[in-house]
Design a protein around this nucleic acid. Sequence first.
DNA 1: CTCTTAGTTGAATTATTATTCAATTATTTC
DNA 2: GAAATAATTGAATAATAATTCAACTAAGAG
Lengths: 120, 120
Amino acid sequence: MSKNEFICDCNTIHEETVKETLAKMPEENTFNKIAEFFKILGDTTRTKILFALDLNEMCVCDIANVLGMSKSSISHQLGTLRRMNIVKCRKEGKEVFYTLDDEHIKQVFEVALEHIEHKK
Amino acid sequence: MSKNEFICDCNTIHEETVKETLAKMPEENTFNKIAEFFKILGDTTRTKILFALDLNEMCVCDIANVLGMSKSSISHQLGTLRRMNIVKCRKEGKEVFYTLDDEHIKQVFEVALEHIEHKK
DNA sequence: CTCTTAGTTGAATTATTATTCAATTATTTC
DNA sequence: GAAATAATTGAATAATAATTCAACTAAGAG
C-alpha cells in the first residue's frame, strides 16, 4: 500500500495513531495563539518588566532603571506587551505609567517557578 | 542632586519605587530560567509536538506526519525538548518513541487556553 | 557482512526577534 | 511660542533561533 499521503520516507508509520492524533489536534490558529502567548513570556527583558510591574506601577524611565536598559528598548517591549493586552498604561503629564493588565501572568509565573524548582 | 547612578537621561525618576522594586527582584538567573521555560512553549512546532504527545506516545516519523514537517526538523526540536527534560524517549528497534516527561505542561497549556478565551 | 532504513547531528541557510540610533510626538515650563 | 524632556516610533543592525541539507549512526533483514 502506498504511503504517498505521508510526508516522510518511513514505512513504519503508525497510521492509526497518526490519524487519531490528527483528528484530535486543535486548528492551526489555536497553536499560533498559544505559542504567541508563551513567546511573550519567553524573553528575559519582558519577564523582568512583568515581574517589576507586578510589584509596582512604574513609568518607562523607572522600568529602564530597574532593568538597567535604555528607555527605547523598554518602550519597544512595552509596546509589544500593550498590543498583546498584557499591560496597560495611563498618562500623567509627560510620564506614562504602566501596570499589569492580565490576571493570568502571576498564575503562569507560579507554574514556571514550580517547574524550575522541580527540575533542580 | 546627581542622577549619575541611573542609566537614563530622565530627571523624574521615582527613586523610592525603583529602589524598592530592585530590592524585590529575583536574581538574574531566575529570570533566565523562567524565560527559557516559556521560550520552549513559545514556538508553534513545539507546542504542536507537546500537544500531540499528550494525546499519544509516538515515534519521530509519526510526529513528522502529524505536523506535516520533515523528520529532521522534528528531531532537532525533540532534541531541544529532551535536553530540557520536557519529553523522554524509549528505543524499540530502529524506532524511537517519545512521551511527555513533565506534569506542568498540561497545566500550563490550560492557563494559556484560558488566557486566549479571555482575551477574545 | 551488506543493504536498508529510523533517527540523529553539524553546518549552512533562512527567518525571526531584540536592541540601537536618530528622528518625532506630546506635554510642561518659561 | 520656544525650550526642554518623557516617551514613542521606524529603520538599521545585531543577535538568536528554526529549518534544510547532507552526512552519519544504529539496528534489523536478507
